[in-house]
Simulated assay, not measured.
Amino acid sequence: QRPPSLSAGMDSAPLLRALAALADDNVSFFGRSGTESGRRFAAAFAALREHGRRLEPALRHFALLCHLFDLDESTPGNGYRSLLQTARCCLAHAVHRSRYVAANRRSLFFRAGHNAAELEAYGDALAQLRALLCLAQKLLARNRPGCLFPPEEEEEEGCGVSELLLREYSTMRNGCFYGRCLGFQFAPSIRPVLQTIAIGLVSFGENYKQHQLGLGVAAGSLFTSGKFALDPELRGAEFERLTQNLDVHFWKSFWNLTESQLLASVASMAASPVGVCRVLAVPPEPLQLPLAADPSVTVTICPPVAHSGPGPVHMRLLCYHLREGQ
């Protein structure tokens, strides 16, 4: 009997077979062209074929095991399953682009440079996903059977798998996930939003490193955002640099842009006003919740504690219409 993970649509074999067949066909076609563009396509498809071949054992391994870490049968979700699904999404996009190239490569309006860059980007993404799957396999091998997290005693001694994962992750190149492949694992409707945020972030970061302050950074970001919108590779490289080198003050400055009076005024003019916009603070008080099995017995849920100790959780209540009871 097949495990639940495979029966739930986690079998990657059809995608891998399709990718291998399309890669072979395109390598054969472009390998005969003798042009620089043809050699670029042939190299990109050869890389996709190799990544697919190397990914197959790891994907099959996790497809057989990821259901063991679900909360229960009706809640199929854990980190291994998410990583497996992300790899499958990337494979699906690579297959889609390969089919498009195979169907339109003889067309007069075929955009060779654009399609070659797309294939190379997904090849880079698959390479990094291969590395992530290798790290996940190391984590799985070091943990106790059936345990999602590493042993606490190893982590306390500083020789645990978390230290190993952080060291190896720091050597990875994640810029490919913020360039042409940005948001490939999400629905198409949300990708423009993610692209807008990424372009705004890297534009803001370029002016932030010049020690500008306040509205000067925001204004400069507006003028430099065009090059990051037109050059996905540059955007991905800059995003990787920002995430690795800039401190928490940069992130606070960026996310606080929406709280400035100028941007709030622009938003109020460009967008429809909401009926409810209220800032709330949830105090750091423990909650007493009854057990589902025995409502007469309660369990105490402690408030979340960060490095600075217990503190209120600030949030904003937004609603388009003001309804009764709000």
Rank of each mutant, 00 (worst) to 15 (best):
L68A: 13
E56P: 06
P192G: 02
A43N: 05
H249D: 03
L201M: 08
A8I: 11
A141N: 08
L65F: 07
R106P: 02
E285P: 00
M269L: 14
L133A: 09
H249Q: 13
L55C: 04
E118F: 05
P295M: 11
V305M: 09
R144A: 12
L15S: 01
G113D: 01
P312A: 13
S28F: 05
L318D: 13
A219C: 06
L133Y: 01
P273A: 02
R32H: 13
N78C: 15
R144D: 11
S33E: 05
A116W: 00
N26V: 14
R2S: 15
R144Y: 14
M315N: 04
E163I: 00
V95M: 07
S162H: 06
N207Y: 12
A103T: 07
L182T: 01
L291N: 04
Q1A: 14
P76A: 14
S265E: 07
R111V: 06
A281S: 13
R106H: 08
L242I: 09
R88V: 15
E154S: 13
S308E: 15
S7W: 06
G226F: 15
A229K: 05
R40M: 11
L133N: 01
A264H: 05
S272Q: 12
N245C: 14
L129V: 02
V202K: 00
F110S: 01
R97M: 09
R241F: 14
P273D: 04
Q210R: 14
T243F: 15
T35K: 04
Q212E: 02
Q195C: 09
A121S: 13
C90S: 11
P14T: 04
T35W: 09
N207W: 10
F45D: 02
S162L: 10
L16V: 08
A218G: 00
A94D: 07
P303T: 13
A92G: 10
S308Y: 10
L91W: 05
P284R: 03
I190T: 04
S5L: 04
G113C: 10
L55V: 04
F29G: 01
V313L: 15
G226P: 02
Y169V: 10
D11P: 09
M315G: 11
A293Y: 10
A237C: 06
S162E: 07
V161I: 11
N245G: 10
W251K: 11
G160R: 02
E155K: 03
P295H: 12
S12C: 08
N104L: 03
L215R: 02
G226V: 08
H211T: 13
R235S: 07
E120H: 00
Q244W: 10
P145M: 03
R2Q: 14
T300N: 01
F250W: 07
V305L: 11
P192W: 06
L213K: 00
L132T: 02
S7Q: 09
Q185T: 06
S162Y: 05
L68M: 11
S33R: 11
R32K: 14
L148Y: 04
E285G: 00
L222M: 04
R144I: 13
R2A: 15
Q185S: 04
A127Y: 02
I190D: 01
E233D: 08
R130W: 11
G311K: 03
G38P: 05
H61E: 15
